[in-house]
Amino acid sequence: MDFSIITGNIDVYLEGLKNTLILVSLSLIAGLAMAIPLAVLRVIGNPFIQWPIRAFVYFFRGTPLLVQMFLVYYGFGQFDAMKDSFLWPLFKEAYFCALLTFSLNTCAYTVEILRGSIVATPHGEVEAATAAGMSRLLMLRRIILPSAFRRALPAYSNEIIFMLHGSALASVITIVDITGAARIINSRFYSPYEAFITAALFYMAITFTIVFFIRLLEKKWHAHLQPADQSVITIEAPHENITG
């Protein structure tokens, strides 16, 4: 193996690293911002509001991210109405399509995570808030959501890691993220080991950095629950229960 290929072309990887970090963080922020109100509506809304949210979550959790991305990037071009609309300059861009797909995808998983933790709010907390005369909105803001976020943290940290791993798919629609950089180097020098092992190392470094910071956050948020042994975050497959 000859890693001088990598050190000579490190700028390609750094460009990729930049794109991966931008894509992942923007998608996560947009996804979470959409997921919070959707999760609340999914729990307390009337059936006419709940039903579309359920359908949205069911679709995005039941199909592969790759297919969703193809639908957005290639699929919308099928319609002339779309091509003539003011949105077309956006949907022509691979970057925008990846961002949109990733945001919607992570939003769907996050809605499900948050819904689970909102439903699990201890009844006493809600009763106490009602007894204190809080309005529904105030209760949501001060009691239900903060307590739900705390419970959602372990599952959400898995979702962050999965979004990072899923972002590698952006390279399929021509975006130069870390995987895209590796594919460029591989095709330029025909050196698959060096190219992809380097990409793997980049991803591992990001993963473990994220896990480290989440552990700090968990220590802070879960300080009141800290048992004698410090529990370790494990990254698991996202929880699937589509009918739920």
Binding site: L164, H165, A168, I178, Y193, Y203, M204
Partner: peptide, 21 residues
């Protein structure tokens, strides 16, 4: 630990292209 740190696509490309070599 290693599997959890690497995206599946990267691993698949490594096995496919690397395996070829």
């Amino acid at each position: 630990t290693v599997i959890r740190g690497i995206p599946d696509l990267v691993l698949m490309l490594l096995v496919f292209f690397g395996g070829q070599v």
